[in-house]
Design a protein around this nucleic acid. Structure first.
Length: 577
RNA sequence: CGGGAUGUAGCGCAGCGGUAGCGCACCUGCUUUGGGAGCAGGGGGUCGUUGGUUCAAAUCCAAUCAUCCCGACCA
């Protein structure tokens, strides 16, 4: 392709909107352009790269036994109501009505739609297992779109859904997909780390994320440096194990201490000159039908993800001040385990200002078990208790893991090494979904005995646009992008330094000869000075540059420059492939 | 949704009460031609939108929309 047909859209100056290198370079080198916050146009080069990635994904999915289909972007509300997610998905899901008033979602994911498709044609166990995938546009109304293609509101995802009679069969496909993903990212020139992940509101048992280590990543991973152990997980998923176990402490008298205007653990600890480790921190959440009071060690932060997994799964948020008053009879900051009007054990129904009656739950972190001398709110404004004892002032049967694990905590697997933290971009995710959707949507097949069974499911996603930008994030220098050959729009960037029409004709012949031989080459035939072409060639980042200059016109020799290393060598036209 | 910032030519920005500017890009001509050329000439903006203050508003005030950054984490 020639520049006169397929123009460059390069910019001389950095666009103001871009904050990170990969985003800046994709804009500047003319690969993408923003249309609205979180919505991007793919320009010619960008679309070429995108399609190369798509093709890699397609080839590997096909090679690993999956079948491609294509579903509508709009999914009817009824499907989401069947699974119960119409209400759960919240504002992240974009919705609209047609002229008849029928409700639709712009699909953020397609579990429901694919399960609905499967139940239409799956009747017998003989049809299983089957793995259906599509490459299609998704919509998520992100709170805050960021970093170009990394987090946007319209994006292309490859999503696959597999259906199985047995756990073993699901496991086989899960492993197959794991292998396919390794191949896909490898072919894209990305080094991924596979980590255990939280299953989120998707439901299901096992789940693994494919992460590319990067400082702009929005995921935090915790890794065990002990190679024999090899533990790697998403921070959200990591079980908290303190490096130094919490001391049991001495049993002592309970005392109520005035702590006026001291609300946070930090404030009260400073005020009483006590260590934060001896505090029992209370955090209150509510959902549509629950109020959840959590107690955790005072020196740590709570993991909202972990609490969410222990709740009804609906929209979890910090409780309102009214709800805290209704629950504890005290303002925020003074909540504690003693004197809760419903006791300190299990659940009962209360009625906060929020119209509805809600179930009250109390969750204790396991690290509070059996401890004495703890400090917590007195459930009375302006007072805290010191000297709280397990068994006397609070107790619990089941303790939970509620604390967010951090770097330098103990590895929960080998329990010998300190965890290390890394930031990363999630480019792929594989799940064992289980029967959540097949069950809810009435998917059944007959087994060998002719009895109906509900198939179990797996689900496997890759963000294509995000993958594309991640490749740039990992492959660039101060001059521009350095594409891996597998996804570069073209293999060669041909720069003509012709000074007259005779020389121009020579370069054009060269280009036509390369075309004829099927060499992937972009010909910059613009009437520009050499420097401009060199800069654009480096910026757009194809793996090799062919420079037709003096040596070509005099001796027929071309200069080949390797973009990545800057290394140059001479070659004859026939030697270029 | 809370806090901060910014909207002026295609892009990057200055101007902050008195005729709308600069650099790059674009068009024409001449010279130049191996790392973002020089000279000369030229085209292009209802200053995000709406309302207000004023003799006079890009400039002051208000509202609104859009974009970017930080937060939405925890009493």
């Amino acid at each position: 392709m020639k520049a006169s047909q397929l123009p460059l859209f390069t910019l001389k100056e950095d666009p103001r909107e871009a904050q990170v290198d990969s985003h800046r370079l994709l804009l500047r080198a003319g690969y993408i352009r923003r249309q609205a916050s979180g919505f991007y146009t793919f320009l010619p080069f960008g679309y070429l790269v995108y399609r190369k990635i798509e093709q890699i994904v397609r080839e590997e999915m096909d090679a690993h036994g999956a079948v491609e289909v294509h579903l509508p972007v709009l999914t009817p509300a009824e499907l989401w109501r069947e699974s119960g997610r119409w209400d759960i998905m919240g504002e992240e899901m974009m919705r609209l009505k047609d002229r008849h008033g029928h409700e639709f979602a712009l699909g953020p994911t397609h579990e429901e739609a694919m399960t609905a498709l499967a139940r239409e044609f799956l009747q017998s166990y003989k049809q299983l297992p089957i793995n259906l995938y599509q490459i299609g546009t998704k919509y998520r109304d992100e709170i805050r779109p960021r970093y170009g293609l990394i987090r946007c509101r319209e994006f292309v995802m490859k999503d696959a859904y597999s259906f199985h009679l047995t756990e073993e069969s699901l496991h086989e496909t899960y492993e197959l997909m794991r292998r396919a993903y390794r191949r896909i990212f490898e072919r894209c020139g990305l080094e991924t780390i596979a980590v255990e992940a939280d299953t989120g509101n998707m439901g299901g048992s096992a789940s693994e994320e494919f992460i590319v280590a990067s400082s702009i990543g929005e995921e935090t991973l915790l890794l065990c440096p002990n190679t024999d152990c090899g533990f790697r997980a998403n921070q959200e998923k990591t079980t908290f194990v303190p490096l130094i176990p919490y001391e049991v402490g001495q049993r002592e008298e309970r005392a109520k201490i005035p702590t006026p205007n001291q609300k946070t653990v930090e404030e009260v600890a400073a005020f009483l000159k006590k260590d934060r480790r001896s505090f029992m921190k209370a955090v209150v959440y509510e959902t549509e039908d629950e109020i959840i009071l959590c107690f955790i060690p005072g020196d740590r932060e709570i993991s909202e993800t972990k609490v969410k997994n222990l709740s009804s799964g609906k929209s979890l948020r910090l409780a309102s001040e009214e709800a805290i008053w209704a629950l504890c009879g005290a303002p925020p900051g003074y909540v504690g385990p003693v004197g809760l009007r419903f006791g300190d054990r299990e659940s009962m129904v209360i009625s906060p200002n929020d119209q509805k009656k809600k179930i009250a739950k109390v969750l204790f972190d396991e690290n509070l078990r059996g401890r004495h001398g703890l400090i917590s709110g007195a459930n009375e404004g302006g007072y805290h208790y010191v000297g709280l004892s397990y068994g006397r002032d609070f107790h619990f049967d089941k303790g939970y893991d509620l604390v967010e694990a951090q770097e330098h905590d103990l590895c929960p697997r080998c329990r010998t090494s300190k965890l290390k933290a890394t930031r990363g971009i999630e480019v792929g995710h594989i799940f064992k979904l289980g029967r959540k959707y097949s069950e809810a949507m009435g998917l059944r097949v007959l087994d060998e005995k002719g009895l109906p069974v509900v198939p179990t499911m797996g689900c496997y996603g890759i963000g294509l646009g995000r993958t594309m930008q991640t490749i740039v994030e990992q492959n660039h220098d101060e001059r521009g992008i350095v594409w891996p050959e597998s996804v570069s729009p073209f293999r060669y960037y041909l720069i003509s330094l012709a000074k007259n029409s005779e020389e121009e004709q020579k370069v054009l012949s060269l280009y036509q000869m390369l075309q004829k031989r099927g060499v992937s080459c972009y010909f910059d035939d613009r009437q520009e000075r050499a420097g401009v072409k060199f800069h654009d060639a480096d910026l757009t980042g194809f793996p090799y540059q062919i420079i037709a200059g003096r040596s070509f016109f005099e001796k027929g020799e071309l200069e080949i420059k390797v973009r990545k290393t800057g290394e140059k060598k001479m070659a004859l036209p026939e030697e270029i492939y």
